[in-house]
Nucleic acid binder design. Structure first.
Length: 292
DNA sequence: TTAGGGTTACAG
DNA sequence: CTGTAACCCTAA
């Protein structure tokens, strides 16, 4: 009667996915309580979150005739809407500031959403989420984890390499348990301790836990949501949002590179951060030029 | 509160 | 008419 159907927006979906990445699937109340998401999801209940998450999963794995197209796109960058202009795609990592020409005087109210949506997600969280969601009694193998993340999120071309090194690292630190090519989540949560085995002795110098560093990983929905919002904005507003996003991406790169110097295990992550950031810049630039 | 099963509304 | 997504109900 009064309420026809409240379809989920891209923003809401993005918030949900981000929430699941951080708090884990099933912690709907926790996600809803998180001030970062409560704003976007204010009109949703915990049950709504649960249902939506189920829908996403069902559609993705259960071969909905609709998602088959998605599966086929695998390697293809997302956002089917705005097709990439081959003319603009290059020049990502190295040179830069394609955004310098952008007037930054635009009102900040436009970027409020970008502000609240801190998309800093750790690859660790994604891996844990994958294992948690897959719920395989014996654990999930690398391929299953990779497929999960690739389908649900946004994976770079060299993701396989990155994932392998990450899994190895997490296993070495006791976060994961590897048995016959299958990974399970270690019993105790990350908060406890990192099993500093003194008996091992050797030159082990108590690493500063490279895991503390945060990686910026966009989910498909997050990127889509951002672009969708920009479509409705004026060119100035869109440009401001794009500049902000690129700035964040560059910050993420700097962060990752710095960490890479401190811990050799972070090398792959620094590389990944560049790929993610590059793709984001490409997408945002493309949209920006369109609106301009 | 959450996980499932089931129902209704809407789009193709 | 069929499939999908939001919504609803109930058991654990």
């Amino acid at each position: 009667m009064g309420a026809p159907k409240q379809k989920w927006t891209a923003e809401e979906e993005a918030a949900l996915k981000a929430g699941v990445s951080k708090h884990g699937a099933g912690k709907w109340q926790t996600i809803l309580r998180d001030p970062e998401y409560s704003q976007v999801l204010s009109s949703r209940s915990n049950v709504d979150l649960k249902d939506k998450w189920r829908n996403i999963n069902v559609t993705l794995s259960g071969l909905g005739s609709r998602e088959k197209a998605r599966l086929a796109l695998k390697r293809n960058p997302q956002v089917p809407n705005l097709d990439d202009n081959p003319s603009v795609v290059n020049k990502v990592g190295s040179d830069e500031k394609t955004v310098e020409a952008i007037p930054v005087g635009a009102p900040s109210e436009a970027v409020q959403a970008a502000d609240s949506k801190k998309t800093y997600t750790r690859l660790d969280s994604l891996i844990l989420e994958a294992i948690t969601t897959l719920k395989e009694p014996k654990g999930s193998d690398r391929n299953a984890i990779a497929l999960y993340i690739e389908e649900r999120y946004w994976a770079p071309p060299n993701f396989s390499k990155l994932l392998a090194s990450k899994l190895k690292f997490m296993t070495a630190h006791g976060q994961l348990v590897k048995v016959k090519h299958r990974y399970r989540i270690s019993v105790s949560l990350p908060s406890s301790e990192t099993r500093r085995n003194s008996s091992l002795g050797s030159k082990h110098k108590d690493l500063p836990m490279p895991e503390n560093k945060e990686l910026k990983i966009f989910t498909r929905s997050e990127v889509e949501a951002e672009l969708e919002k920009m479509k409705g904005f004026s060119p100035f507003e869109a440009a401001t949002a794009a500049a902000k996003a690129v700035a964040e991406a560059e910050a993420a790169i700097a962060e990752a590179e710095k960490a890479a110097r401190e811990a050799e295990a972070a090398e792959a992550e620094a590389e990944a951060a560049q790929v993610f950031a590059a793709a984001a810049m490409k997408a945002l630039n493309c949209q920006k030029l369109r609106a301009w």
